[in-house]
Nucleic acid binder design. Structure first.
Lengths: 198, 198
DNA sequence: TCCGTTCTGGATCGATCAATCTAGACACAG
DNA sequence: CTGTGTCTAGATTGATCGATCCAGAACGGA
């Protein structure tokens, strides 16, 4: 049982990485098996429904993995605004370190195929929702009212996704740096009204 | 000369519309010619370098077209923050009216191919830059300092692009509504410090 | 009118796509 | 040992991809 699960996970992770660079439609299944060093036959053994099923699993995996990253990030600072700005700056480092190839697999899958495949759209939405929930939890811990936490988290997530897109087109961290600063200010300003009963 | 220019433009606009829905890689050239009601041979007559050249022209067209939209939007209100929030709300209406298919052609092209084709990446960056410049001009008209106008415009553009992406995955205008409100507050707060010598 | 350029309309190509199918390797149960 | 189900390995398929090629229609100037 060690090998099979391993191969399945390697396929998912390879797909997720390729989707980040070149999107869902731009990624061939042969490329995925090559990247994962997995046999072609295994792909349809683990994902009988083919590419769409692999895409759903890749979205699920990315959703869970990066939600954990958001959760951890709130431990970086007592001020939620500062913690979130650090996420923007860290993302800028990741992009720079990959020559601006390493984007968001959920965003690229959403723009490629969310309008054509309802299952994939739902999987992408669930991933975004996990991230949004992780940000909401970070705000809740600082005593934010539920409604404001939800709206603010949607704003943080949207700003992050857009800044990554613009930064990749420009091959420059500027969009992430500037956006991170304004997002931080918005969060700080909102947090001033919360009763910080940590 | 009427017909040829017309066919060329129809191909560009058909490509731009299809890229919005299903991305660059997800769009076939045969689909473009069908949508444009243009003969297959004309495609390689007007765009000898093929799909990449068509993508560059589509990005250029969208860049110029929507830059004009940003410029007009600043006429909607004397307060730049309010004008920008209106753009977010109008975009929400556009998405709702197209069942969340009608996204941003530049964003989807960027995530699909910017890492693989340098010319297309530059074309996408130029489109984003035109939009950013249009927003900067709107801030300048209200007496914003140049450096702050640039940073704030990068933030506005990033937030808009990301909110569109998240809204499409969710098939809901919420991300655009919430993000628009926080962006408006950030712009209003910045604008208070400008000497409005209109 | 005639000629040359521009554009159209498809046939066609090799490559690549996602997907199917089968044969055998392998682990484990009895 | 034998039998059974899981996973591997890759050949193969039909469809579709982007791209090439060419014959001829349409147009405009001489």
């Amino acid at each position: 049982m060690g090998k099979p699960v391993d191969t399945r996970l390697r396929l998912i992770r390879a797909a997720e990485q390729l989707f980040r660079v070149q999107g869902f439609s731009g990624t061939g299944l042969k490329q995925v098996t090559a990247e994962a060093k997995a046999p072609w036959g295994s792909l349809y053994h683990f994902f009988p429904a083919g590419k769409a099923e692999l895409g759903v699993e890749a979205a699920r995996w990315a959703g869970a993995y990066y939600a954990e990253g958001w959760r951890r990030s709130f431990g970086w600072s007592d001020a939620p605004g500062e913690a979130i700005e650090q996420v923007f700056l860290m993302e800028a480092k990741i992009l720079e370190g990959s020559d601006y190839r390493n984007g968001c697999p959920i965003a690229s899958t959403t723009l490629d195929i969310a309008s054509l495949d309802e299952n994939l759209r739902l999987a992408c939405n669930e991933a975004f929702d996990l991230w949004r929930a992780a940000i909401v939890a970070g705000f809740d811990a600082h005593g934010a009212p539920g409604e404001e936490a939800e709206a603010l988290a949607a704003f943080v997530l949207s700003a992050m996704e857009g800044a990554i897109t613009v930064a990749r087109a420009a091959k420059s961290p500027e969009a992430l740096v500037h956006t991170g600063r304004y997002v931080r200010e918005a969060v700080d300003r909102a947090a001033q009204t919360w009763d910080d009963s940590r």
